[in-house]
Design a binder for these strands. Structure first.
Lengths: 124, 124
DNA sequence: GCTTAAGGTATCTTTTTGGATACTAGGTTT
DNA sequence: AAACCTAGTATCCAAAAAGATACCTTAAGC
């Protein structure tokens, strides 16, 4: 590991904020989506948030924004070629996250079960 | 990738919040540190924040808290055995972050250079 | 000539996060 | 008896992030 961890934080910037992971997920899955399609795919997101997150991803060269000059407007978003390189990292994070969820449930479900057993014993 | 991305968010929870990466970095590097040693290693962090971050890491079974019953108090923090398994993921994030920083600087430094060249051309 | 459409921006309010400061316990040192 | 030590809590306040809502554009359709 490095002397400081600003690089980890850089990686994190790409993913923090409640919406970026799911935006990336949608774009990785569907290839190309219009603004309104993304909005529909992300129940509860506001235009402001969606715009802000997409602009950050665009700045970082992860997402490409293609504007069609027509009215009503049409804008399509997709993962850039460079952005595709994030795939393995996202996959690794997803894998770790998956097994971590299981770890947590084993950890705390067992506590819960133990408490229930205890409670049951007291009733007797 | 999975149907939703809550697992990625789980992975992120372990790392978001300005302090967790550097706390983990210190503990991975040094093995075991007292509360006050961590505080010294993290210039600017308050006790409140340090405590909060450590408690979250402890809840997730990433960090172990060992209390010595003595006065003045002594508490040592270290990465759990389970937590060590995060090492490769942290490394992968660090690697991606490192190369991404370079990518960004290439992207935007070249713009700057191009602008400077343009400006120079206009002066002639 | 009013409405609808898409992709936003502007403004305000709420929520979340982080920080500053003061306080605690109780044995040891001065 | 006062001061110091460590590992915290408690309370209050500021800053940042997120959300709600209204508004803009310009062409087409009714």
């Amino acid at each position: 590991m490095e002397e400081n961890c600003s690089t980890v934080e850089t990686a994190l910037e790409m993913l923090v904020g409640k919406w970026k992971p799911v935006i990336l997920y949608q774009l990785f899955k569907n290839g190309t989506l219009r603004f309104s399609e993304l909005q529909r795919a992300l129940p509860g997101i506001t235009k402001k948030m969606l715009t802000a997150q997409l602009r950050e991803l665009e700045y970082h060269d992860i997402v490409h924004r293609k504007i069609y000059m027509q009215i009503p407007p049409k804008v399509e978003y997709s993962i850039t070629e460079y952005g595709l390189k994030m795939g393995p990292l996202l996959q690794a994070m997803n894998d770790w996250g998956t097994s971590h969820l299981q770890h947590l449930s084993e950890l705390y479900d067992e506590d819960r079960k133990a408490e229930q057993a205890e409670a049951a014993a007291e009733i007797k």
